[in-house]
Computed example of a mutant assay.
Amino acid sequence: MLTYKAFAKINWALSVLNKRNDGYHDIISLMHAIDLYDTLIFEPSSGIEIQTELPIKRVNNLIYKAIIALQQYTGIKKGIKVTLHKQIPIGAGLGGGSSDAATTLKALNELWGLNLGVNTLQEIGASIGSDVPFFFNLPLCIVEGRGDIIKPLKIEKSYTLVIVKPKFSISTKWAYEFLNLETELTTEYKKINNNIWQLYLLLYEGAYSNFHSWNDLEKSVSRKYPEIEKIKKKLLEAGALMSLLSGSGSTVFGVFNNEVDANETLKIFEGYWCKVVQTLTSY
Protein backbone atom coordinates (compact mmCIF):
# COMPACT_ATOMS: atom_id res chain seq x y z
CA MET A 1 0.00 0.00 0.00
CA LEU A 2 1.26 3.47 -0.90
CA THR A 3 -0.08 6.85 0.26
CA TYR A 4 0.60 9.97 -1.80
CA LYS A 5 -0.25 13.66 -1.54
CA ALA A 6 -1.51 15.35 -4.71
CA PHE A 7 -0.89 19.08 -4.33
CA ALA A 8 -2.97 21.91 -5.83
CA LYS A 9 -1.56 24.86 -7.78
CA ILE A 10 -2.20 28.51 -8.51
CA ASN A 11 -1.21 30.55 -11.56
CA TRP A 12 0.80 33.68 -10.83
CA ALA A 13 0.39 34.57 -14.49
CA LEU A 14 -1.43 33.09 -17.48
CA SER A 15 -1.19 34.32 -21.06
CA VAL A 16 -3.15 32.70 -23.88
CA LEU A 17 -1.15 33.07 -27.08
CA ASN A 18 -3.20 31.41 -29.80
CA LYS A 19 -5.48 28.51 -30.67
CA ARG A 20 -3.69 25.46 -32.04
CA ASN A 21 -4.68 23.18 -34.90
CA ASP A 22 -5.32 20.37 -32.40
CA GLY A 23 -8.00 22.44 -30.64
CA TYR A 24 -5.86 23.31 -27.62
CA HIS A 25 -4.32 26.72 -26.92
CA ASP A 26 -0.69 27.71 -26.64
CA ILE A 27 -0.09 29.37 -23.29
CA ILE A 28 2.70 30.71 -21.14
CA SER A 29 2.08 30.53 -17.41
CA LEU A 30 3.90 30.73 -14.09
CA MET A 31 2.47 27.91 -11.96
CA HIS A 32 3.17 27.32 -8.27
CA ALA A 33 2.13 24.42 -6.04
CA ILE A 34 0.42 25.14 -2.72
CA ASP A 35 0.08 23.06 0.45
CA LEU A 36 -3.53 22.10 -0.22
CA TYR A 37 -3.67 18.49 -1.34
CA ASP A 38 -5.76 15.41 -2.05
CA THR A 39 -4.69 12.13 -0.46
CA LEU A 40 -4.51 9.00 -2.62
CA ILE A 41 -4.04 5.50 -1.24
CA PHE A 42 -2.95 2.74 -3.64
CA GLU A 43 -3.41 -0.98 -2.96
CA PRO A 44 -3.06 -4.07 -5.18
CA SER A 45 -6.31 -5.36 -6.67
CA SER A 46 -7.47 -7.82 -9.31
CA GLY A 47 -9.25 -5.05 -11.22
CA ILE A 48 -9.48 -1.25 -11.29
CA GLU A 49 -11.26 0.14 -8.24
CA ILE A 50 -11.60 3.84 -7.43
CA GLN A 51 -13.21 4.76 -4.14
CA THR A 52 -14.24 8.40 -3.80
CA GLU A 53 -17.20 10.45 -2.67
CA LEU A 54 -17.16 12.41 -5.94
CA PRO A 55 -20.16 12.08 -8.26
CA ILE A 56 -17.95 11.55 -11.33
CA LYS A 57 -18.40 8.69 -13.77
CA ARG A 58 -15.38 6.42 -13.74
CA VAL A 59 -14.61 6.95 -17.42
CA ASN A 60 -14.39 10.72 -16.78
CA ASN A 61 -12.20 10.38 -13.69
CA LEU A 62 -8.63 11.46 -14.43
CA ILE A 63 -7.30 8.82 -12.03
CA TYR A 64 -9.02 6.15 -14.12
CA LYS A 65 -7.72 7.72 -17.34
CA ALA A 66 -4.18 7.70 -15.91
CA ILE A 67 -4.41 4.00 -15.03
CA ILE A 68 -5.70 3.10 -18.50
CA ALA A 69 -3.09 5.27 -20.23
CA LEU A 70 -0.28 3.60 -18.26
CA GLN A 71 -1.64 0.12 -18.98
CA GLN A 72 -1.83 0.90 -22.68
CA TYR A 73 1.68 2.36 -22.77
CA THR A 74 3.31 -0.56 -20.94
CA GLY A 75 1.02 -3.44 -21.91
CA ILE A 76 0.64 -4.30 -18.21
CA LYS A 77 -2.82 -5.41 -17.14
CA LYS A 78 -2.37 -5.35 -13.38
CA GLY A 79 -5.21 -4.09 -11.26
CA ILE A 80 -5.18 -1.37 -8.62
CA LYS A 81 -7.44 -0.01 -5.92
CA VAL A 82 -7.26 3.77 -5.42
CA THR A 83 -8.91 5.49 -2.49
CA LEU A 84 -9.20 9.24 -3.01
CA HIS A 85 -9.73 11.63 -0.11
CA LYS A 86 -10.63 14.86 -1.88
CA GLN A 87 -9.70 18.26 -0.46
CA ILE A 88 -9.10 20.25 -3.67
CA PRO A 89 -12.45 21.47 -5.03
CA ILE A 90 -13.54 20.54 -8.56
CA GLY A 91 -13.78 23.15 -11.33
CA ALA A 92 -11.74 25.56 -9.24
CA GLY A 93 -8.68 26.32 -11.40
CA LEU A 94 -6.46 24.63 -8.81
CA GLY A 95 -5.46 21.62 -10.91
CA GLY A 96 -6.87 18.97 -8.56
CA GLY A 97 -7.79 16.40 -11.19
CA SER A 98 -4.52 16.86 -13.06
CA SER A 99 -2.55 16.50 -9.85
CA ASP A 100 -4.45 13.30 -9.02
CA ALA A 101 -3.60 11.93 -12.47
CA ALA A 102 0.11 12.76 -12.18
CA THR A 103 0.22 11.28 -8.69
CA THR A 104 -1.40 8.09 -9.97
CA LEU A 105 1.23 7.72 -12.69
CA LYS A 106 4.05 8.26 -10.17
CA ALA A 107 2.57 5.83 -7.67
CA LEU A 108 1.92 3.06 -10.20
CA ASN A 109 5.39 3.51 -11.67
CA GLU A 110 6.71 2.68 -8.19
CA LEU A 111 4.13 0.06 -7.19
CA TRP A 112 4.37 -1.86 -10.46
CA GLY A 113 8.17 -1.53 -10.70
CA LEU A 114 8.03 0.04 -14.16
CA ASN A 115 11.14 2.25 -13.81
CA LEU A 116 9.80 4.79 -16.30
CA GLY A 117 11.62 8.13 -16.41
CA VAL A 118 10.00 11.46 -15.60
CA ASN A 119 9.96 12.51 -19.26
CA THR A 120 8.02 9.38 -20.18
CA LEU A 121 5.54 9.89 -17.35
CA GLN A 122 5.09 13.52 -18.44
CA GLU A 123 4.39 12.39 -22.00
CA ILE A 124 1.75 9.95 -20.79
CA GLY A 125 0.34 12.62 -18.50
CA ALA A 126 0.07 15.16 -21.32
CA SER A 127 -2.27 12.78 -23.15
CA ILE A 128 -4.62 12.96 -20.15
CA GLY A 129 -4.67 16.70 -19.49
CA SER A 130 -2.72 19.88 -20.22
CA ASP A 131 -1.84 20.64 -16.58
CA VAL A 132 -0.65 17.11 -15.76
CA PRO A 133 3.05 17.55 -16.79
CA PHE A 134 3.50 20.42 -14.34
CA PHE A 135 2.84 18.14 -11.38
CA PHE A 136 5.98 16.11 -12.12
CA ASN A 137 8.09 19.26 -11.63
CA LEU A 138 6.93 20.88 -8.38
CA PRO A 139 6.93 23.37 -6.86
CA LEU A 140 7.34 26.20 -9.42
CA CYS A 141 7.56 26.22 -13.23
CA ILE A 142 7.11 28.30 -16.31
CA VAL A 143 4.74 26.25 -18.45
CA GLU A 144 4.42 26.73 -22.21
CA GLY A 145 2.91 25.12 -25.30
CA ARG A 146 -0.35 23.39 -24.44
CA GLY A 147 1.14 22.73 -21.00
CA ASP A 148 3.76 20.21 -22.09
CA ILE A 149 6.85 22.46 -22.15
CA ILE A 150 8.09 22.76 -18.58
CA LYS A 151 10.85 24.93 -17.11
CA PRO A 152 11.32 24.09 -13.39
CA LEU A 153 12.44 27.02 -11.23
CA LYS A 154 13.96 27.38 -7.78
CA ILE A 155 12.11 29.22 -5.03
CA GLU A 156 13.17 29.75 -1.41
CA LYS A 157 10.38 31.99 -0.13
CA SER A 158 6.89 30.80 0.73
CA TYR A 159 3.89 33.09 0.27
CA THR A 160 0.73 33.23 2.37
CA LEU A 161 -2.46 33.10 0.30
CA VAL A 162 -6.16 33.23 0.95
CA ILE A 163 -7.97 31.16 -1.67
CA VAL A 164 -11.71 31.67 -2.15
CA LYS A 165 -14.05 29.59 -4.31
CA PRO A 166 -17.62 30.69 -4.96
CA LYS A 167 -20.40 28.11 -5.06
CA PHE A 168 -20.13 27.67 -8.83
CA SER A 169 -17.45 25.78 -10.76
CA ILE A 170 -16.05 26.65 -14.18
CA SER A 171 -15.24 24.31 -17.04
CA THR A 172 -11.75 24.89 -18.43
CA LYS A 173 -12.98 24.03 -21.92
CA TRP A 174 -15.76 26.60 -21.65
CA ALA A 175 -13.39 29.31 -20.36
CA TYR A 176 -11.08 28.96 -23.37
CA GLU A 177 -13.93 28.77 -25.87
CA PHE A 178 -15.59 31.83 -24.32
CA LEU A 179 -12.30 33.73 -24.55
CA ASN A 180 -12.17 33.07 -28.30
CA LEU A 181 -15.65 34.50 -28.70
CA GLU A 182 -14.88 37.59 -26.63
CA THR A 183 -11.46 38.80 -27.75
CA GLU A 184 -8.74 38.65 -30.38
CA LEU A 185 -5.54 37.09 -29.07
CA THR A 186 -2.71 39.35 -30.21
CA THR A 187 -0.26 38.73 -27.36
CA GLU A 188 3.40 39.29 -28.25
CA TYR A 189 5.35 36.25 -27.09
CA LYS A 190 8.68 37.99 -26.44
CA LYS A 191 7.06 40.65 -24.28
CA ILE A 192 5.10 38.09 -22.26
CA ASN A 193 8.15 35.85 -21.87
CA ASN A 194 10.18 38.76 -20.50
CA ASN A 195 7.39 39.82 -18.15
CA ILE A 196 6.94 36.33 -16.77
CA TRP A 197 10.67 36.03 -16.02
CA GLN A 198 10.58 39.41 -14.29
CA LEU A 199 7.65 38.20 -12.20
CA TYR A 200 9.59 35.07 -11.26
CA LEU A 201 12.59 37.14 -10.15
CA LEU A 202 10.34 39.28 -7.94
CA LEU A 203 8.88 36.13 -6.40
CA TYR A 204 12.34 34.71 -5.82
CA GLU A 205 13.53 37.93 -4.19
CA GLY A 206 10.41 38.30 -2.06
CA ALA A 207 9.58 41.68 -3.60
CA TYR A 208 5.86 41.01 -3.61
CA SER A 209 4.93 44.68 -3.21
CA ASN A 210 5.98 45.09 -6.85
CA PHE A 211 3.90 42.23 -8.23
CA HIS A 212 2.21 42.60 -11.56
CA SER A 213 0.28 39.41 -12.19
CA TRP A 214 -2.22 38.70 -14.93
CA ASN A 215 -4.63 36.10 -16.27
CA ASP A 216 -5.94 36.43 -19.83
CA LEU A 217 -9.01 34.39 -18.92
CA GLU A 218 -10.06 36.60 -16.02
CA LYS A 219 -11.77 39.41 -17.92
CA SER A 220 -14.07 37.23 -20.01
CA VAL A 221 -14.78 34.80 -17.14
CA SER A 222 -15.69 37.75 -14.91
CA ARG A 223 -18.17 39.05 -17.47
CA LYS A 224 -20.03 35.77 -17.25
CA TYR A 225 -19.49 35.45 -13.49
CA PRO A 226 -19.32 38.97 -11.94
CA GLU A 227 -18.88 37.44 -8.47
CA ILE A 228 -15.23 36.87 -9.40
CA GLU A 229 -14.59 40.63 -9.36
CA LYS A 230 -16.53 41.01 -6.12
CA ILE A 231 -14.28 38.42 -4.42
CA LYS A 232 -11.16 40.15 -5.77
CA LYS A 233 -12.38 43.49 -4.43
CA LYS A 234 -13.09 42.03 -0.98
CA LEU A 235 -9.62 40.46 -0.81
CA LEU A 236 -7.94 43.74 -1.75
CA GLU A 237 -10.04 45.70 0.74
CA ALA A 238 -9.03 43.19 3.41
CA GLY A 239 -5.35 43.96 2.79
CA ALA A 240 -4.31 41.58 0.02
CA LEU A 241 -1.23 42.83 -1.84
CA MET A 242 -2.68 41.48 -5.07
CA SER A 243 -5.55 39.25 -6.14
CA LEU A 244 -6.10 37.11 -9.22
CA LEU A 245 -8.25 34.38 -10.72
CA SER A 246 -6.34 31.06 -10.71
CA GLY A 247 -6.33 29.27 -14.06
CA SER A 248 -9.80 29.16 -15.55
CA GLY A 249 -11.33 29.62 -12.09
CA SER A 250 -13.53 29.77 -10.22
CA THR A 251 -11.02 30.17 -7.34
CA VAL A 252 -9.61 33.62 -6.62
CA PHE A 253 -6.50 34.04 -4.47
CA GLY A 254 -5.00 36.97 -2.60
CA VAL A 255 -1.44 37.40 -1.28
CA PHE A 256 -1.09 38.50 2.36
CA ASN A 257 1.83 39.70 4.45
CA ASN A 258 1.25 37.16 7.20
CA GLU A 259 -0.99 34.33 8.40
CA VAL A 260 -2.67 36.48 11.07
CA ASP A 261 -4.08 38.90 8.48
CA ALA A 262 -4.93 36.01 6.18
CA ASN A 263 -6.87 34.11 8.85
CA GLU A 264 -8.71 37.29 9.83
CA THR A 265 -9.78 37.68 6.20
CA LEU A 266 -11.52 34.30 6.22
CA LYS A 267 -14.23 35.84 8.44
CA ILE A 268 -15.54 38.00 5.60
CA PHE A 269 -16.02 34.97 3.36
CA GLU A 270 -18.52 33.00 5.42
CA GLY A 271 -20.57 30.78 3.12
CA TYR A 272 -17.70 30.40 0.68
CA TRP A 273 -15.16 27.60 0.42
CA CYS A 274 -12.01 29.39 1.55
CA LYS A 275 -8.64 28.53 3.09
CA VAL A 276 -5.32 30.01 4.10
CA VAL A 277 -2.52 28.19 2.28
CA GLN A 278 1.21 28.49 1.68
CA THR A 279 3.09 28.17 -1.58
CA LEU A 280 5.64 25.34 -1.59
CA THR A 281 9.38 25.88 -1.69
CA SER A 282 10.36 22.24 -2.11
CA TYR A 283 8.81 18.88 -2.87
Rank of each mutant, 00 (worst) to 15 (best):
M1N: 09
L2D: 03
L2E: 05
T3F: 00
A6P: 01
A6H: 03
F7S: 02
A8T: 00
W12F: 15
L17P: 06
K19N: 07
R20M: 14
N21H: 02
G23K: 04
Y24E: 06
D26L: 11
I28S: 07
I28Y: 06
L30E: 12
A33K: 06
A33P: 08
T39E: 15
T39H: 02
L40W: 00
I56D: 09
A66N: 04
L70Q: 08
Q71P: 02
Q72K: 12
T74E: 11
G75S: 01
G75D: 10
G75Q: 07
K77M: 05
G79N: 07
K81W: 09
K81E: 05
H85T: 11
G93M: 05
L94P: 06
G97V: 09
L105G: 01
K106C: 10
K106N: 13
L108M: 09
E110T: 14
E110Y: 14
G117M: 03
N119A: 07
L121G: 12
I124Q: 07
P133R: 02
F134N: 00
F135W: 09
N137Y: 04
L138W: 01
L138E: 08
I149K: 14
I150G: 05
K151M: 06
K154F: 11
S158P: 03
I170N: 08
K173N: 05
W174C: 06
W174Q: 06
Y176M: 09
F178G: 01
T183Y: 12
E188N: 15
K191S: 14
K191C: 09
I192H: 07
N193E: 15
Q198M: 12
L203H: 13
E205M: 13
Y208A: 03
Y208D: 05
N210W: 00
W214C: 01
N215I: 10
L217C: 11
E218M: 15
S220F: 02
S220V: 03
V221A: 08
Y225A: 08
P226R: 04
E229R: 08
E229F: 02
I231T: 04
K232G: 07
K233N: 14
L235Y: 04
L236C: 03
L236G: 00
E237K: 11
E237V: 01
A240G: 08
L244V: 08
S246W: 09
S248K: 02
G249T: 10
S250R: 06
N258V: 10
E259I: 14
V260L: 13
N263D: 08
E264M: 12
E270S: 14
W273L: 13
K275Y: 14
Y283T: 04
